[in-house]
Write a protein that binds this DNA or RNA. Structure first.
Length: 445
RNA sequence: CGGAGCGUAGCGCAGCCUGGUAGCGCACCUGCUUCGGGAGCAGGGGGUCGGAGGUUCGAAUCCUCUCGCUCCGACCA
């Protein structure tokens, strides 16, 4: 993309309403525009990152054997009357009437609807196990939306639902989700720690929340310092292998890690003192096993091998996709702006032309731009007629992890400059070498 | 939902107390000079002061109502 033809309305000054750094940077970097309290338009670059996160979530869900579908944002109230949650959910649910005066609602989640789909089409144990998920906009009419997309009223969420015959099968689904989530966050360059959680209104006994450590997090967290160092890495996981999947879960949940809701001083005291850490975290996902809570109230049953009919075992699992953007920035920024991890960056690298209009630098930049694109990479070429300082400031603000700087001074020596946004370190090399390096960095990302 | 505050140009703000017909910085447009970390000079465009009502000869300013937004606390992906 050529910046002169893109739509990237960056702000030089901090918008007054944004208090936390991710909100401020998303506004300044021209990623979002607020339309109402907790409701945002996603401008091109914000939308690009959001789509990238969505894609990673999809890939990891499919890898785990889960099946995508799409349910609507608007739902009939009757489904929720059946489960009993229409009255329970309270004012957080946005209720709407259509022209025929029918009660509708903007879905805050989809347990009822997925259960309805299931019971309409599945009757036999032979169709199990089954895990369906979608990535769809939700609405929860929060009393006090804040922190930009981290606590919006409208938000994009991946929610998945497993249907199993037995409790053991359902717990395997639970574990499968935990591992797929670990992998998802890791690909995004985030360290998200599974922590035992309280169940909340969705209900259920087994539940973990995934927390990204950040000073601005809303939850207080207590954990063993060795937990954030745990990595899934690129090990191959057979998601159908129960022992293997359970083993990974054990690996990641044995050491102490809890939020203030489930914190237990007595257990925490057993953690060696030098490993005890207290901090703050942003919740970016949660997994639940809730058994037959919805299948019983809504009649989602299957016929077993012996001919009897039993309610299915279920769980639901969510990732706050739009919130992840905020969490990513909270975890990856400095005083100049965002620092995108390679896995989620909106553009692979930036090209800064220090002397726009100069035949030599223009040609060198065009050459780089074409070479990178020919390799399937997506560079952002700052071809605006701006001064060097302005271009550098924009690049730092929007946080592309790599920048190639092209100026007459370097070109006279046959070199361009490759700079890491994260470390700030620069290296001079030929244009061809810079292209090769970028390609190598993104190989396999 | 309790408490506090803010709405004046695209963004950041001053003016309001003490009414007299709107200003500053950035951004934008034009020209010249600049050009390796948010340039300088000169000129220019843009605001029914959130909305409605009231007081007054006169309202951004005072009064009433209303809408929106933010922050602090209790609740949540």
């Amino acid at each position: 993309m050529r910046l002169s033809r893109y739509f990237l309305p960056v702000l030089k000054e901090n918008p007054a309403e944004a208090q936390i750094v991710s909100h401020r940077l998303m506004l300044r970097a021209g990623m979002i525009k607020q339309q109402a309290a907790g409701i945002y338009s996603w401008l091109p670059m914000g939308f690009k990152v959001l789509k990238r996160l969505e894609q990673i979530v999809h890939e990891e869900q499919v890898r785990a054997g889960h099946i995508p579908l799409l349910m609507p944002t608007l739902q009939p109230a009757d489904l929720w009357r059946e489960s009993g949650r229409y009255d329970d959910y309270g004012q957080e649910m946005l209720r709407i009437k259509d022209r025929h005066d029918r009660d509708m609602l903007y879905g805050p989640t989809n347990e009822e609807m997925i259960t309805d789909i299931f019971r309409s089409h599945v009757n036999s144990y032979k169709d199990l196990p089954l895990t369906l998920y979608h990535i769809q906009w939700k609405f929860r009419d929060e009393v006090r939306p804040r922190f930009g997309v981290m606590r919006g009223r409208e938000f994009l969420m991946k929610d998945g639902y497993n249907f199993d015959l037995t409790r053991e099968d359902a717990l395997h689904a639970y574990n499968r989700h935990m591992v797929s989530y670990l992998r998802t966050y890791e690909r995004m360059g985030l360290t998200a720690i599974p922590m035992r959680a309280a169940s909340g209104p969705i209900g259920g006994d087994n539940t973990h929340e995934f927390l990204v450590l950040a000073d601005t997090g809303e939850s207080e967290v207590f954990y063993d310092a060795r937990v954030p160092a745990l990595k899934l890495g690129d090990r191959a996981v057979d998601y159908d292998n129960r022992e293997e999947v359970a083993g990974i879960c054990e690996e990641f949940t044995t050491l102490y890690a809890r939020t203030d809701e489930t914190h237990d001083e007595a257990v925490y005291a057993e953690v060696p003192e030098e490993h005890r850490k207290v901090g703050r975290g942003i919740e970016v996902g949660q997994i639940f096993y809730f058994g037959t809570k919805y299948s019983e109230s809504m009649g989602a049953t299957v016929v077993t091998p012996d001919g009897s009919r039993v309610p299915v075992e279920m769980g639901s699992h969510g990732i706050g996709v739009s919130r992840l953007l905020g969490a990513l920035i909270e975890a990856n920024h400095d005083d100049k702006g965002i620092i995108w991890p390679e896995g989620v960056t909106p553009f692979h690298c930036g090209i800064v032309n220090l002397k726009q209009g100069d035949t030599g630098t223009d040609a060198a930049c065009e050459g780089l731009y074409k070479a990178l694109r020919d390799l399937g990479l997506d560079p952002l070429y700052d071809d605006r007629d701006e001064r060097a300082g302005a271009k550098f400031a924009t690049m730092d603000l929007i946080g592309l992890p790599w920048r190639i700087t092209v100026g007459p001074r370097g070109l006279a020596n046959g070199v361009v400059e490759l700079t890491s946004r994260r470390s700030g370190e620069s290296e001079e090399m030929s244009a061809a070498a810079a292209v090769a390096r970028i390609a190598q960095i993104y190989d396999g990302v």
